[in-house]
Nucleic acid binder design. Sequence first.
DNA 1: TGGTTCTGCCTAAATGGATTAGGCAAATGC
DNA 2: GCATTTGCCTAATCCATTTAGGCAGAACCA
Lengths: 191, 191
Amino acid sequence: MAGRAGLTAERLAQAGAELADEIGFGGVTLSELARRFDVKVASLYAHVRNSRDLKTRIALLALEELADLAADALAGRSGRDALAAYAEVFRTYARRHPGRYAATRFPLDTDTALASAGVRHARLTRAVLRGYGLAEPEQTHAVRMLGSLFHGYVDLENSGGFAHSAPDSQESWERIVDALDHLLRTWPPAR
Amino acid sequence: MAGRAGLTAERLAQAGAELADEIGFGGVTLSELARRFDVKVASLYAHVRNSRDLKTRIALLALEELADLAADALAGRSGRDALAAYAEVFRTYARRHPGRYAATRFPLDTDTALASAGVRHARLTRAVLRGYGLAEPEQTHAVRMLGSLFHGYVDLENSGGFAHSAPDSQESWERIVDALDHLLRTWPPAR
DNA sequence: TGGTTCTGCCTAAATGGATTAGGCAAATGC
DNA sequence: GCATTTGCCTAATCCATTTAGGCAGAACCA
């Protein structure tokens, strides 16, 4: 009755991100969002194209946030310090914002992906590796390894993979970062 | 009209697995499955409890298959050979059966998970590591690292992360396995 | 073989999300 | 002040999930 609710695509994406952290990215639905804004579902279509569009916006928002955090953490650090800081930011974000983190893996179409903060992430990972002096194509292999390992770890951790078993996930994470640092410093030559 | 379609939970899970590989695990739906069997949706409820139950069955089926393949590949191998064979089986399965692979990550409740082939996977991973002589707790850290890395890699690969960019994903994969072997042979002491 | 029970699939109906078409009233621009 | 645009609405359709209850053929039992 009171008139306009002040919806915008940005506010919807923001609210969607919060919703995702509360109930999981899979639970993010136009209906649920409409409920929260006390608005009819159809009204949302004036601001987002469809459900996929909303999820894409949440993904982009999360990718930006994470890239910002990583960029801050990496400023002024290099080598092992940079690696540890990057790892810490990544895992903390995924734990603190599981819904947003899940959103970062929502499949984007190619154009959107290229215009997204995903590109910044790639650059940041390369920045981490700079201190280890790997030449191409080895650097790219290492980028992929780092990305896979971090992503895989937090994904398994968030889905409960390491809960209820010793040792502590935190301890494994630290040792894995140690091991990665060691590996990058002694990266084996191509056979 | 023709009478019974011969539905069983097993046949539904099998057909669901094929469906997943064709259209993605996310597209697996009781409705679609009913369509394929030319049967009404409600009929499926005589064989599976609900949609989640079906997906769980597909997940268990895929975990079994993958564990069988891995066990075969590991027989008689050790050290670097075992690592490479394990990696190969894992990635090949994920590429050949993306839907089934996605299913392996369907969240199982604790009891189901404990009774699943997930336990075999853990044992197989430890078998791979046996050749590297890591004592606990370092072996567990390494198990988690391997699991995360393999899972993360094929997940990113399947979602198109490494397509359209040099070098080839195959090449990265091989180099990453090289690097892992090197790392496991020179695993750094806890600091 | 004939009846009974059980099994396997059916129809029907409710719930809830996604999406589109079209309307109306408040806000804005001249 | 009037026209236009904007923002949200109602209404309707489609599709997936799930439950309740029915009926006919298969299997079993004397």
